[in-house]
Design a protein around this nucleic acid. Sequence first.
DNA 1: CCCCACCCTTGACACCGTCAACTTCTGCGA
DNA 2: TCGCAGAAGTTGACGGTGTCAAGGGTGGGG
Lengths: 196, 196
Amino acid sequence: MAPTSLRDTVLAAAVDYIADNGPDGLSFRQVAIAAGVSHQAPYHHFSDRRGIFQAIATEGYELFTTAMLESLAAEPDDPTTALLEAYVNFALDHRGHFRVMFRPDLCAIADSPELQRMADGSFDVLVDHVRDLLGPKAPLKDIRARAAAMWSMAHGLSTLLIDGPLEAKIGPVSSRRALIRAVAEQSGLASPKKRR
Amino acid sequence: MAPTSLRDTVLAAAVDYIADNGPDGLSFRQVAIAAGVSHQAPYHHFSDRRGIFQAIATEGYELFTTAMLESLAAEPDDPTTALLEAYVNFALDHRGHFRVMFRPDLCAIADSPELQRMADGSFDVLVDHVRDLLGPKAPLKDIRARAAAMWSMAHGLSTLLIDGPLEAKIGPVSSRRALIRAVAEQSGLASPKKRR
DNA sequence: CCCCACCCTTGACACCGTCAACTTCTGCGA
DNA sequence: TCGCAGAAGTTGACGGTGTCAAGGGTGGGG
């Protein structure tokens, strides 16, 4: 109905497929005929298979950055937990994008300057927050370690939830929000402001 | 030289390939002819492509469990950090196995009882440690959250290091050991015994 | 009217996973 | 010793996939 270009149609179909089935089975041809065009039509919009993944990742990082920024604005009391929650929520609600964004073999971030810029932007949100939290004169070493810790926690929780093993072992997660908050509490990452 | 069976040859070749190039480009036929046999020979040892991945994952979980247990025995003073380090070290030193173990779409853990059992065994090492750490009468909720936090941290750090983005953003990691310890310190996960 | 740029189609090629049938080897009971 | 069953490996074929090459049709500017 909407005057979506073939490019947008293909992209949306690919994201949907990846969210359900993972990126690996994605078939260029299948997506094309699903969009009602010949198997070669998408090649006019993407250089090759990798081009589709790069486009998805670029779109993903854009959504990702705004989601994190919004979470910081919405919950200034405990920004660390807010960021953590935004990260996991994005991963679970945009699996199609997330699954591609962190697969360098698929999207070859270094090959696309635009994609590289988008990815850097997302990461800067995290580092800026850590710098803010530890104060301007904190040693760089601590900032890097803290950023790595937060990123690892958020990324690990996201991937373990998406791929399933965490819920399989630890039992069904009734409330995503409660789990994230409990994890932030059990690790020492929750921001001190809110500590009781 | 060694009297390795075709099965072992194929498995080793596949693990090597995956460590370098990721699991997705792995070609059944290529591995076969690299082993000097016809493209159909491996089918006598693995039901299909997924069978190879299941075998790799099973082997991986076995190595993984013993690595974690050994780390606990070697460093009883700070078992949490020891476990974290063992996790990350295993991931980086056995990328071929690690990349497959946490890809349910590849190895379909639920379809292989043996694999399922191995995976459960690995996870039990973690949960037993947390139960030990928090004491026998800690609420189940806390145990679950703590285990999820530790697992997420270790898994996130591992995947971010393997896939590259962490080092790309945070600078080259001179000492893996130092990074892991700094991260454990910055989060609150390091065991209290060693806290100064 | 012609021409060209753009979007798309058709056709071909090599490679892949897998099914099926064939050959070769090996061990073992009669 | 013979015979044979089963495992191990080979060859051939089929449909599906990514990608290269060439062709078609269409609309707008000279």
